[in-house]
Computed example of a mutant assay.
Amino acid sequence: MPTGNAPVLAGARILVTARRRGDDLGAALEDRGATVVHAPTLASVDESARRLRARTRDAIGRPPDVVVVVTATAVDRWSAAVGPAGLGPGVLDLLTGARVMARGPKARAALERLGVRPDWLGEAETTAGIADLLLADGVDAARVLVLHGGRRDADLEEALRAGGAEVEALQPYRWVPLDDRPPVRSAARDTAAGRFDAVLFTSAPGAQAWLRAVRREGRLDEVRARVEERQLLLAAVGAVTAEPLSFAGLLARTPATSRLADLVRLVLEELGDDRHALLTGHGLLRLRAGTVTLDHRPVPLSPGGLALLRRLASTPGHVVSREELLRVLPGASRDPHAAEVAVARLREALRGALRSDQDGGQDGGQDGGQDGGRNGVADDDGGLVRTVVRRGYVLAAR
């Protein structure tokens, strides 16, 4: 039996849609055995430093009563852009003299790095709570400065203006969707075709761009079916990020806290969970997007062998006829002998993997052909795929 010390994500193929920190996320998954494909769905474009500094000088000259900070990245990039122009002290005075509202813990941490403690923290990481609170307190004639992230929140600005506020906005950077780019469209097709075990998202705009690519390729129904059949994991760093997926009818899993480390842990738990594996006499069998593993050790299989094993594993312990196996094999053969040859090759691949793990252990017998074993079942080498005489084949699972 395999020793069980292989990486938990061995054999898994995961799509990472993030650009910012996508490398960190991918490295963490690769360290645990996954194959990671990067297809960023957004590009980040910085605002012109000259324009941002000019608008910052205007804000310093007419200090706001309230500052709403949407993202940590906005704070960091704003500070980096205005600092070389000598505007740092003015920005600090602007912030310390205003009522500062931070959308979430990351925005708060970025402010605290500047020496500013926010007056209010939105735990849900949405701007809706900020708008509700400010409108309840009253913003008539108040000057409100909104420091936006990559996506400008027009609804927040509109709500505050409707309440009588004078709203100014700064946007140090903006997201540009890449859903029409070949790598993203190719990844969308591959997702629908079952070539990924999981797709990961770190922002709502990124999730929206990925959905547009899927829709552009006409593959949303296929992706939804794979999610519903638990053949594909969609994982988002938080509830806000998952919203576009939910609106499209796609179930996305989220960790308890919006941290990349917790997102990685969620993927480990979902893809490595023993409940989703088949217990065999040689270990836990897992079906991955491009291979199978026994106790997390990949088993090299041809496309035909993988197709056969997927069909057998869909009804473990139940007989599958040669005709049914023919239907899932690549090609259009109607010859039952083709199924027998493919099963023999599958068995040989499984035997090779088992011999490697057992350090040259003994083969378990012959195919059996027309020789009936007990109850008409003939054990094959390794005992994973067994012949049921004159009926077909069965995947032996406990």
Rank of each mutant, 00 (worst) to 15 (best):
T126V: 14
V69I: 13
P182I: 05
R13G: 03
A85E: 15
G360D: 11
L232D: 07
G365W: 10
A207R: 00
R347Y: 04
E123Y: 02
D262P: 07
L211K: 11
S203N: 03
L260I: 14
R286K: 09
L111D: 12
L147I: 11
L350I: 09
T315P: 05
E125A: 14
A204F: 08
G4R: 08
P244F: 08
A339Y: 00
G382M: 04
R103Q: 03
P244M: 01
G129F: 10
Y173F: 06
A10P: 04
E125C: 01
T291Y: 03
V341S: 09
D295N: 02
A18N: 09
S314R: 08
V8R: 15
R345T: 01
R99C: 14
L287P: 03
P300M: 06
P172R: 04
R391D: 08
D357C: 11
D274F: 00
M1N: 14
E47V: 07
E270S: 12
R57G: 05
L29Q: 02
R20G: 00
L395T: 06
A43T: 14
A188S: 08
D23R: 13
P336L: 02
S314D: 14
T126K: 11
L308R: 04
W78Q: 10
R32H: 11
R143H: 15
R275S: 14
T293Q: 06
R311N: 09
A124W: 00
A102W: 03
A213T: 07
L306H: 01
R185A: 12
D58L: 12
V292G: 01
R51N: 13
A198K: 03
G90F: 11
H38S: 12
A353M: 10
V67K: 00
S44W: 10
D119Q: 11
R13F: 08
R20P: 01
E340M: 05
L312T: 00
A235P: 09
G104W: 04
L156E: 05
L145E: 06
A193N: 13
G249F: 05
W210A: 13
A154N: 10
R355T: 15
G304P: 02
A81D: 10
L42F: 09
G86Q: 04
T315L: 13
E348D: 15
H148C: 09
P303E: 08
Y173A: 03
G249S: 09
L285W: 03
L354G: 03
G360C: 07
V116M: 07
G206Q: 05
L301R: 02
V184H: 09
V385Y: 07
V267F: 03
A236C: 10
R215M: 12
R181F: 08
E269A: 13
T35A: 14
L326R: 06
G369F: 00
R275T: 11
T71A: 05
A277F: 06
D380R: 02
G369H: 05
R327L: 12
V69P: 00
S321I: 04
W175L: 13
G238R: 00
L134K: 01
R21Y: 05
H296N: 07
